[in-house]
Design a protein around this nucleic acid. Structure first.
Lengths: 334, 334
DNA sequence: GAATCCTATTGAAACGTTTCTATAAATGAA
DNA sequence: TTCATTTATAGAAACGTTTCAATAGGATTC
């Protein structure tokens, strides 16, 4: 590989001149600039990114840390991140945190191979996040809250979203409303449970622990929780699943047992994944402002890199998407 | 940030000693090794990745170049890539080629910020690929063929897959079979068209150009092509859509026009995306060995990095997934 | 024509590692 | 005791850039 030394030699100038010429410095005459560029072209010269980064102590790259590169993909969120990143002339790379402390993601964070990072990876421990965060290396976390001077937090408002979902069921005449949770440690699930409880309370419906079921954010988990409910022969009037995947699993369980949704029971999900529109019946759910979440996250990083001060916490509003899995309950008896 | 210099100073040793100690050289006594490690810990030392890469001229990282980080995601393919990469102790990063020559992907390729790359991005020009490929920098392309000493090619067998799909329709009694293509320049689409034609020929069915429709691999494109077919009031007996997305768009068009699939017309897709199973009717389609494609790609890269010789072209077999969008045609009249 | 100011160019240091080579100390053989 | 050998450590060069400070020469001013 040709280096800048070779280019300088061929062009007959000093190394520094070559560097200036290739970096469009104004101090270089047009003639020498041309000479250098031609030399570079003839040698098929490409700068060595590492050497350059090393000297500049700046990479012009933002990392998006995902728990698993192979999905589930938050494509709108990434779109938001991507758009803003490239609008600012930065590069974006995605890396996975599979493998824990040995993972690519952790290496990139610790070795500061990027200028800033957005973390959406439950398997990156808080400890590692805190160790990596430092001055001039802003970190935005999306799936947890963390108190640290250099860690920032953006989230869709889980409490409000869950409140809306639950209230929607209540407004459709349902009182016995179950909640199918995500993993116990999930920040999102905990918040959504909070919103669920808040809504019940606000409408004078006492919370009953028998209506809380444990899921794990997977289709199978939703299926199992629902089977359990059915087996207990004591169905609620409505179910709020902490995410769409589980709701779809639940749908399958109901189908298998000849229980009609929404005829016999109303259900509502959370996330508005692509599939939600296609299942039968189409799933009513809560849509999160994913694009905005992504866009805001990078935006904050750029503000911070520019030395501005920003808040440590941001909450974005969610939105109810009405489809056909919730039905108005006409109180026949009672 | 603490550097190795600081560590050496605190530990009271030379820089080189510190370096050896941190890199587990055998020549260092246990005592000093411990001393250095403690110093590193106390300073929260993290090595500078660039400096290290610069000296080593090796990054231990493989890049996966995607046309758009926000999907459509070939999650199984990525899984394959990921598994093999980490099994070899390498890091994997994904980067996008949005923005053409200014994109992150192109920079990473040209500036050789990785040891090898897998390219699955139609918007990376052949020219750039060829410019980037060089000795000790193996490139695997998945969505085109390219003749170059340092470029390798892995693909699911498009011709065979399309042949199988078309033959499946033929074997179900269909003769008038339409093909809805992807973008004209798409390598995949062209190959699939070839397979379609081959199957017709093999079964003595003449190819009619009126049965070729232009799509673009999107849902909307499939919808439009299908609408056009319906408007012409001359429907084929079966349609082979060059991918599932378009088939699903087509399904919607048929639904809107009260045409029953597969009662009135059989359709088949290509890809076996997740949605295919959920649409109504579930879509018969061709499944590609995505995981294997990904795994083989990285495997080749490692072989090449190790100095081994491998073939330049690999073709992996596809598989028919039978669902309910194709029906046996009982020839009532004629 | 001397003094001043630009402008284009150069030389050299620096970024933080790794690694080759040299050296000093410790060990062993004679 | 001396010399050779091993071992642990140190010194310094190198990787390929960028950029500060220095310089030379030409243009401008009076």
């Amino acid at each position: 590989m040709a280096t800048i030394k070779d280019v300088a030699k061929v062009a007959g100038v000093a190394i520094s001149t070559a560097s200036y010429a290739l970096n469009n410095s104004t101090k270089i005459s047009q003639a020498t600039k041309k000479k250098v560029e031609e030399a570079a072209k003839s040698l098929n010269y490409q700068k060595n990114g590492f050497a350059s980064d090393l000297k500049r102590t700046k990479t012009n790259t933002i990392a998006l840390v995902l728990s698993d590169l192979s999905g589930p993909f938050y494509s709108e969120l990434i779109q938001g991140v991507q758009d803003i990143t490239s609008a600012n002339g930065y590069d974006l790379i995605a890396c996975s945190s599979i493998g824990g402390p040995q993972s690519t993601a952790v290496r990139f964070l610790k070795e500061k191979r990027v200028d800033g990072a957005i973390i959406l990876a439950h398997n990156i421990s808080d400890e590692i996040t805190l160790e990596s965060a430092r001055k001039d290396f802003p970190l935005v976390v999306l799936d947890r809250t963390l108190e640290n001077e250099f860690v920032y937090h953006v989230e869709a408002d889980n409490v409000q979203g869950a409140y809306t979902a639950t209230e929607h069921l209540i407004q459709h005449g349902h009182e016995d409303i179950a909640y199918v949770s995500g993993p116990a440690i999930s920040h999102d699930s905990i918040r959504r449970f909070q919103g669920y409880q808040d809504a019940l309370k606000a409408h004078g419906i006492p919370y009953q622990s028998k209506w809380k079921f444990s899921g794990d954010f997977t289709k199978k988990g939703g299926y199992r929780a629902t089977k359990l409910m059915i087996a207990q022969r004591d169905l609620p009037e409505g179910i709020f699943y902490a995410n769409d995947e589980m709701a779809i699993g639940g749908l399958q369980a109901f189908q298998e047992n000849g229980i009609d949704v929404p005829g016999d029971i109303s259900i509502i999900g959370y996330d508005d994944i692509e599939l939600a529109e296609y299942v039968n019946p189409p799933l009513t759910t809560i849509k999160q402002p994913k694009y905005d979440t992504g866009a805001l996250s990078v935006h904050l990083i750029f503000q911070l890199l520019a030395g501005e001060k920003v808040n440590h916490h941001y909450k974005l509003p969610t939105e109810l998407v009405t489809r056909q899995s919730v039905k108005l309950k006409t109180k026949v008896s009672e």
